Simulated assay, not measured.
Amino acid sequence: MSELQSNINSSLSMKDLLDTITSASMGILIIILLCIVVFSLMLHRTRKRLIAVHNRLKAEKQSLEQAKTQIKSLKKESAKKSDKIERLNNDIMVASQSSEANARCGKELYLHIKNGGTTVTWTKQDYELCMAYCKIEFAETMAEIERCYGNIAPRKQLIMLLQHLNYDYAAIGRVLGINSDSVRKNIARITPLTK
């Protein structure tokens, strides 16, 4: 009986041991499962943060690419404008030099007339150059002629200016290389804006 008792005790203690081991195993298993769940949650949260950071970086990269494209476009536009400004400055310089040369030619023609010279080969450009100078030299008179006769051709402007400067028909004819009757007819054809 004592053996039986010993076997029962031994069996009970084995059972207790097995129950204890099972309980301990279950506890460890639960702890491991909890650790896995916590780790999974942390991993999921970290993954979400990484995706958000990745998307933000992607958006910033796109913004940078757009900014680079705009900068490139602005540089091209700026270069074009710089070229255009340089061409305009060159054009202004050429026009200024040309204007000075034209003023000198016009002055020479006017002085030739004033000194009693006669020119029988007037060209349209000669009239234009001479009148460009006369519009500076006789600004008020030329303004009055324009008010009275409107925008008439440079040849007619010269005729009216010479008449205003008290040149007679013969003198105007000598300047233009035509006879005095032609001068009279030319003046008659120049009609004032208001009578």
Rank of each mutant, 00 (worst) to 15 (best):
N7Y: 12
S11W: 11
S11Q: 15
S13I: 00
T20K: 13
T20W: 10
T20G: 14
I21Y: 10
I21G: 04
A24I: 07
M26W: 06
L29P: 01
L33F: 11
L34C: 10
V38P: 00
S40H: 07
M42S: 13
M42Y: 10
M42W: 08
L43R: 07
L43S: 12
R45Y: 08
R45H: 09
T46M: 06
R47Q: 13
R47H: 12
K48D: 12
R49K: 15
V53S: 04
H54M: 07
H54A: 11
R56H: 10
R56S: 08
R56C: 05
A59L: 11
K61L: 11
S63Q: 06
S63T: 04
K68D: 08
K68S: 07
Q70K: 12
Q70N: 15
Q70W: 09
Q70T: 14
I71Q: 09
I71L: 13
L74W: 01
K75R: 14
K76S: 09
S78T: 04
S78M: 02
S78I: 03
A79S: 11
K80Q: 07
K81Q: 07
K81I: 00
D83I: 04
I85N: 05
I85R: 09
E86G: 02
V94I: 15
A95G: 05
A95H: 10
S98M: 05
A101Y: 05
N102V: 07
C105A: 14
G106W: 03
K107Y: 05
E108D: 13
L109T: 01
H112Y: 12
K114P: 01
T119D: 07
T119N: 14
V120R: 15
V120A: 13
W122P: 02
D126H: 15
D126S: 08
Y127I: 05
E128H: 06
C130G: 03
Y133T: 02
K135N: 11
E137D: 10
F138V: 01
A139W: 02
M142E: 04
A143S: 11
E144H: 08
I145A: 03
I145H: 03
I145Q: 01
R147H: 14
R147I: 07
Y149W: 06
I152F: 02
A153G: 15
A153S: 15
P154T: 01
R155L: 06
K156R: 15
Y169V: 01
Y169M: 04
Y169S: 08
I172Y: 03
I172E: 04
I172A: 03
V183F: 02
K185Q: 06
N186E: 15
T191Y: 00
L193Q: 11
K195L: 09
